[in-house]
Structures are given as structure tokens and as C-alpha cells.
């Protein structure tokens, strides 16, 4: 996890389920409202999990991009 002024990069590439959602949960625990979490993953299951997570926690998914194997999810923390 790499944090620079309210922006946290969570690199979960190469780790399969539940790696990415574990890493996101840890980042969420450390976040504040207004922070942005950028999650990198290669496990396709991450999309469904992150969507369910955002619905449950009322946080905002700004974008989900796929380039080759890499999935990039940008999340804005709007509720803590």
C-alpha cells in the first residue's frame, strides 16, 4: 500500500480471490472521507466484489478500467 496525500494505491495484482478485497478492506479501514483508493488487480472476480462492497458501504466507484490483464478500480471514499 502506497499513500500520497489522500490517494492510496493498492496493488493486488497477481493475488487471487480474496486478495484484492482483503487489501481494499484494509485500505478502507485506514481511509478518511474524501480519500481516493486506486486498486490494481488481475483477478476478474474483483469487479463483482468491489461493486457489492461499494453498494454496501455507500462509497463511490469512479471507474473500472481493464487493460489486458490489469483491472484498475478508482474508488472515492464518501462514507466512513
Amino acid at each position: 500500500m502506497n499513500q500520497t496525500s489522500g490517494r492510496t494505491l493498492v496493488d493486488s495484482r497477481g493475488s487471487s480471490c480474496p486478495g484484492p478485497i482483503t487489501d481494499l478492506a484494509i485500505a478502507y479501514r485506514r481511509s478518511k472521507v474524501g480519500d481516493v483508493i486506486e486498486l490494481w488487480a488481475t483477478d476478474p472476480g474483483v469487479k463483482a466484489d468491489v461493486n457489492a462492497w461499494a453498494t454496501k458501504t455507500s462509497n463511490q466507484i469512479v471507474s473500472i478500467d481493464e487493460t489486458g490483464e490489469k483491472i484498475t478500480v478508482i474508488i472515492r471514499i464518501t462514507k466512513r
Partner: peptide, 10 residues
């Protein structure tokens, strides 16, 4: 559990 399901891996 902090996970989306009872056991973390589907």
C-alpha cells in the same frame, strides 16, 4: 465478516 460472503474465496 469483513468479506462479501461467509468464506472469503467463492
Amino acid at each position: 465478516t469483513p468479506y462479501p460472503r461467509p468464506y472469503s474465496a467463492e
